[in-house]
Design a protein around this nucleic acid. Structure first.
Length: 483
RNA sequence: CGGGGUAUAGCGCAGCUUGGCUAGCGCGCCUGCCUUGGGAGCAGGAGGCCGCAGGUUCGAAUCCUGCUGCCCCGACCA
């Protein structure tokens, strides 16, 4: 790159984002519209996300399976809202082997239809229930406007699909998986989220109820980071998923689906990044410690020998450590690895070798400490945990600072946004009372571009009146600009 | 899909208004010397179908027409 400095976040957050993810080598643009390449560091983040979630899915009784990517067009006609929701963004295969296909095939945007079809063949009896499957897959959605990781034509995700004998059990499953997403986001990604219910207008196409986790990005915008849907009997009826119950009556099953995608990588960047580049939480970082040897050529041999020894000790302790022995100046390397988000830097120079010590520098705070090489692995492991924790605390503090709980009318909200824009700051999120009407929801959207994010299960404040109409409020809802 | 902008080396740009010599600059890249605790220095070097197609002209990166990609702004989305 011509200029090694990133655009500052305050100057232009979206320019910062695009530059940061490319300079950190998480992704690159592919030759197809809206498609990206996941480069090794980006893909490894996904692999670590996969590993963490997959373990949690298995612990709760789910198994993985894989269904075809091509879906017959007739499948989309079996659930009316589902078709209407997805039709505009489906890519189609219409020709193969040099001939027109009898029935065109869609590249899946999600697999409710394919899986519904298969479930109808597999489920006969209440003894076959619950059926708890998950699929790791790529999906396609031809979006008008794309943004790397957050919205691309093809993306990677996980979609869980379960079938249950009764409504209560299916609803419980829907909430259980949402809670797993929230716990994962906080403990592994150091990203706090609000769990809550989507309003009817933001519901998944074909769902009875949709729940989400919502996270605040550094520009104050909201990102839907995961969803869990209670599908009722909609797909069961569309695809004939029936079972014979204990009472010898044929009944439709209740289904759920839930998913998170590679969008989480974008979330990680937008939650923790700063003007130096991206910053990764230790639990997910492909490289947790980067070692940088320092010193003139004449001391090289001694320094390298010590590096090799320390490297071996850290590696043996299970720490993901890497050495940068390239012929570049230390300063250059410092900036490079900060840009790539490595949580901890370890410097060893001639002075350190003499006194059996090294210098550790934290990515999250910039803090430098000189420490003994004795018991270094234990010390480092603790420090990584401290960083993980601090990143979550910082994200929580940022979210609290930018959450506004004391705006009670649309006028106040409009003023609040105007003040933020005039001051060049972000307007953050606003917790509003809501009467539950679509009219009020639409009005906020039209006048402020804020949309309803979700109705939090545990709102941080109670609201007596609807922010828009002033009528008695039945619930609190997060309002924000969203990605 | 509507409105605006842009396309010249891997990246960022100048040159175009007023057509003309071998198309430049910075960063990066390669080789050598030297250097190393916050983006070092010197010397030498490689790298271009000036987005694509057509037109005007003795001559086009430069003027004209069409197309395509990308970026930004508005209606849809994990």
């Amino acid at each position: 790159m011509s200029d090694n400095k990133l655009t500052a976040q305050d100057t232009d957050f979206s320019a910062w984002y695009i530059e940061a993810i490319q300079k950190a080598e998480l992704m690159d643009y592919a030759p197809v519209r809206g498609c990206i390449v996941f480069r090794p560091d980006g893909y490894e983040l996904w692999e670590r996300i996969q590993a963490g979630l997959d373990r949690r899915f298995k612990e709760t009784g789910h198994r993985n399976a894989y269904f075809p990517m091509l879906i017959p067009s007739s499948f989309f006609e079996k659930e009316k809202e589902h078709v209407e929701g997805f039709n505009p963004e489906l890519p189609w295969v219409t020709e193969a082997g040099g001939e027109q296909l009898e029935e065109k095939l869609a590249l899946r945007p999600t697999s409710e239809t394919m899986i519904g079809y298969m479930y109808s063949r597999w489920i006969q009896s209440y003894r076959d229930l619950p059926l708890l499957l998950n699929q790791w897959a790529n999906v396609f959605r031809w979006e008008k406007r794309t943004l790397p990781f957050l919205r691309t034509s093809e993306f990677l995700w996980q979609e869980g699909h379960t079938a249950h004998a009764d409504e209560a059990e299916a609803r419980e499953e829907t909430r259980r998986m949402l809670d797993i997403y929230a716990e994962f986001a906080e403990s592994e990604m150091a990203m706090p989220v609000w769990t809550g219910q989507k309003t009817p207008s933001e519901r998944f196409a074909g769902a009875v109820d949709t729940y989400s986790i919502e996270a605040m990005m550094k520009d104050g915008k909201a990102l839907q980071a995961g969803t869990s849907h209670f599908l009722g009997q909609n797909f069961a009826k569309g695809f004939g998923i029936e079972f014979l119950d204990r009472d010898n009556v044929r009944k439709f099953v209740y289904t759920t689906s839930w998913g998170v995608s590679t969008r989480l990588i974008g979330a990680l960047v937008m939650v923790h990044g700063d003007d130096k580049g991206i910053a990764l939480p230790p639990r997910l970082a492909p490289t947790q410690v980067i070692m940088i040897p320092i010193g003139p050529p004449k001391s090289r041999e001694k320094v390298m020998a010590k590096c090799t020894q320390v490297y071996g000790e850290l590696k043996a302790a299970g720490i993901r450590v890497q050495r940068d022995e390239r012929e570049a100046t230390p300063g250059w390397k410092f900036n490079e690895w900060e840009m790539r988000g490595v949580p901890l830097r370890l410097e060893i120079g001639p002075r350190d070798v003499e006194s059996n010590q090294c210098v550790l520098v934290r990515r999250d705070t910039g803090e430098k400490v000189t420490t003994s090489l004795d018991n270094l692995a234990v010390y480092t492991a603790h420090l990584l945990e401290t960083i993980q924790n601090n990143m979550l605390q910082k994200a929580l503090a940022f979210r609290a600072e930018n959450s506004h709980l004391h705006l009670d009318t649309l006028e106040e909200l409009v003023m609040h946004i105007a003040r933020a824009e005039a001051g060049g700051t972000n307007a953050g999120w606003v917790l509003g009372g809501w009467c539950g009407s679509a009219e009020c929801e639409m009005k906020v959207r039209e006048e402020t571009k804020f949309t309803t994010r979700n109705i939090p299960f545990a709102p941080p404040a109670r609201k007596e009146k609807c922010l828009v109409c002033g009528e008695k409020s039945s619930q609190e809802v997060w309002l924000a600009r969203a990605y």
